[in-house]
Design a protein around this nucleic acid. Structure first.
Lengths: 249, 249
DNA sequence: CATATTCGAGAGCACTGCTCTCTGTTGAGA
DNA sequence: TCTCAACAGAGAGCAGTGCTCTCGAATATG
């Protein structure tokens, strides 16, 4: 099988463990270094050309090695893409976390995080497309991704939890989400915090909106629809913040 | 150039006009028929395998013709994809319009349209991915698509307009969208109706939510997050309906 | 009927992901 | 220290892709 669909399984057999553990022998050190170089070259190509135009062969060419040699480090193109997905998830999560100022007013924290996620996305549109766009057919996201994927939405949840603890959360208005609609495990998505199903639903909506409205902007769905994207985005952030009960206007 | 990026321009040179005009000569008739057959075969492959695995060559094989012959009908793979995009936009718009019952209560109309769009999307996930997923790099949506893309959101707008005309629209709560954020042209998106910038913003949000939450469900972002997707979707529809002022609960 | 246009087929180019084999290198155990 | 297995790189090759070009054959138009 030459198609990508046939390689969904290969993704799960992560090989580039050299990155995690401290390399000991010279060979392991070289392996870790080359793995990082491949990843960096792939990242550069992803960033500049997009995932569709990223090929193992071009990465190999850029590094001056045979394409077959790259397969010593990444078992397939999908595995390379998965590594880039993990990296991107991690970066967008970090951008969100870094923007958060736990001591500040909830509205400021909320807006700062939303803006940071948008900034990152505008600056990394191909990475954004990779993690939030259409998944490659036959591609099943490995478990490695799901943990790191949570960092960004968890940052939003933390702001809400803190606000509630301080007694500043406005009571919910509008339809309340039925309990059966939400997975029970989600009620404890933040350690030490208990959320109601409706609160979880509202968090999902906020997270979905943040991702969705940026996707609309990035994919041109807002062309000729909005006149000032940054302004509209801030309004979006405020609207969702007010919806979940933060003290906005 | 062998890459898709190099062919963005080719998309604009639509060739398969045989479909629109009544064929006169035998040759034109044959051309129209073959064009339709190619499109049908491509649609079948899109539906079953997804856009990434759809190739002009496999379409040609299925029809028993040389791959080069297909290029007499579609100048490029992108052009074929564009035709499929138009078809899909049209279908999802039609699904929305057909589900709407202009005489019924706004809540029922709203829910029916939302459900119809979800049903269509679940039944046509690859088509959904094609129109709302990551755009192909270098691919600029031709003008032909933007008109047909509006059918679905316009159906939502129509329900809101009708409700307002009947005096049943609840006044807006929460942050009001600043006028400068919205493109002036959008205020008259429905002939004979005038929307305020804030109303347009709310419509954008509803449309974005409808597309976004289905995308989340389709792409597995709601796995282990929601427990009952249909129930959660109905709640989503109600929440957005209430937000825009429809008389929900 | 001659001519211009259209159409289908086949070969070919430059790519792709991936596999296999062959050689050289490196590291760990006897 | 020597041996041998594991590892790493290169190259060829396979099957697939989009797309172009050319060359006959069919078809429509003057």
């Amino acid at each position: 099988m030459h198609t990508r669909a046939g390689n969904a399984r290969a993704v799960l057999s992560f090989r580039y463990t050299g990155l995690m553990n401290a390399p000991r022998t010279a060979r392991e050190r070289a392996r870790a270094e080359l793995t990082a170089e491949i990843l960096a070259a792939a990242r550069r190509q992803l960033r500049e050309e997009g995932a569709a135009l990223l090929s193992l062969r071009s990465v190999a060419r850029e590094l001056g090695m045979a394409s077959s040699a790259v397969y010593r480090y990444f078992a397939s193109r999908d595995e390379l893409l998965t590594a880039l997905i993990v990296q991107s998830y991690s970066e967008i999560g970090e951008a969100a976390e870094n923007a958060d100022r736990p001591g500040a007013a909830p509205q400021e924290r909320w807006l700062a995080v939303w803006r940071a996620v948008r900034e990152w996305s505008l600056a990394h549109r191909h990475e954004y497309a990779l993690i939030f766009g259409t998944p490659v057919p036959g591609y099943a996201a490995p478990h490695i991704t799901i943990e790191v994927a949570g960092r960004m939405p968890l940052t939003l949840a933390r702001i809400v939890a803190d606000t509630r603890r301080d007694g500043n959360l406005t009571p919910a208005t509008g339809p309340i989400c039925p309990t059966e609609a939400i997975a029970p495990g989600m009620l404890t998505l933040l350690a030490g915090e208990q959320f109601s199903p409706d609160e979880v639903a509202r968090l999902i909506f906020c997270w979905n909106r943040l991702v969705g409205i940026i996707g609309y902007e990035l994919h041109g769905h807002l062309a000729n629809v909005t006149a000032d994207d940054a302004l509209f985005f801030d309004h979006t952030a405020r609207t969702e913040g007010a919806y979940i009960g933060l003290p906005f206007s």
